[in-house]
Design a binder for these strands. Structure first.
Lengths: 183, 183
DNA sequence: TCGGCAATGTGAGCGTTGTCCACATTCTAA
DNA sequence: TTAGAATGTGGACAACGCTCACATTGCCGA
């Protein structure tokens, strides 16, 4: 056969291709329109193919969420442990949520009623990694910063809050105000 | 006719009945299994009936989320404006999320890309109501407490954190630690 | 009082989805 | 080389969101 580029029967790296497609579709069309079939279409395979790599749709989403947590951890990994680290931590959440709101929403709304699911583990791992990376801060302080970052980012992603021009300054102001009010 | 209790053709209060059914199913089976058809079944009507009261499924969920925000506001409405108000505020989130995790998740994961949707408005309204109820605190402090409450509750709902026996003390410790670390 | 219209409910049906199945193709190790 | 594991296909099924034409009921003006 001289046919130039008939796609081979076996894809070669379908699992990652599906994750990439899903991630792109998530940002482009939103979670509601993210069907397994559309992911398969985007990756150029049949609608049954994904089941060779993920038990069900949920498992694909879980892998995507876990991927997000790992990248969030990396982002924090390159953070200096200075005095403003907690502000940087919160600000990092906002930057992440702004860059990929779809993935952010998926990560933090994934229903993990059973604690053994992958995203829950990945989330805990991210929190624990943070404790290693910033040993100067107490566990409570880091948990608080994590929660504050998540909460602020969620408010912004959901259009209930819009920080001004300087996001970092805004975050610092909120932390300072809350700290003063609760002292 | 002597038939004792044939349900009448017209329900009478179907809209609220649907909301009640949806809310119950949300807690019992989770959001993934919450179909408009199952809500209709639970309310004892045909699967097309809900469309006389909600434009689509999304609108029902939006109404449910808005309802949640109103109840959250009420909860905070009866809060004394003492020194520990911010801790109470955060703790209120945790209590709400614990009581109805399904509704909590729906409220805070509802995709409001367009800012004019009802839940986004209800969320903003709740935040603004808080500023009226606790005039002694700055807007930044209240926003921070709101975000921290949301974030901590999400961590707990998603099984990534389990506070000890005394939740309020735990919250206070986190606020104090974060405040100290960022001072 | 009655007649008609708006409001509200029904059942059937369309297109899409998640998932499974039997089968086809390719890769790999013995 | 060849058997079996891995990976892909097309077709099917039930459930879903949603729409339509039609049925039933409540209510208001003549």
């Amino acid at each position: 056969m001289l046919s130039v580029s008939t796609s081979p029967y076996h894809h070669g790296d379908l699992r990652n291709a599906l994750l990439r497609s899903a991630r792109a579709l998530l940002e482009r069309s939103g979670e509601a329109d993210l069907s397994l079939r559309s992911v398969a279409r985007d990756a150029g395979v049949s609608s049954a193919a994904p089941y060779r790599h993920f038990a069900d749709k949920d498992e694909l989403l879980a892998a995507l969420a876990a991927m997000g947590y790992r990248e969030l951890t990396e982002r924090f990994g390159s953070m200096p442990a200075t005095d403003g680290a907690l502000t940087d931590l919160v600000e990092g959440f906002l930057a992440f949520a702004e860059a990929e709101p779809g993935l952010f929403r998926l990560m933090f709304s994934y229903p993990c009623t059973r604690g053994d699911k992958e995203p829950a583990r990945a989330g805990r791992a991210a929190l624990e990694a943070l404790q290693h990376q910033l040993p100067g801060f107490s566990e409570e302080a880091l948990t608080g910063a994590w929660a504050l970052g998540h909460g602020l980012a969620a408010l912004i992603v959901h259009n209930q809050l819009s920080p001004g021009d300087d996001r970092r300054e805004y975050v610092a102001a909120i932390i300072k105000a809350a700290a003063k009010a609760s002292s």
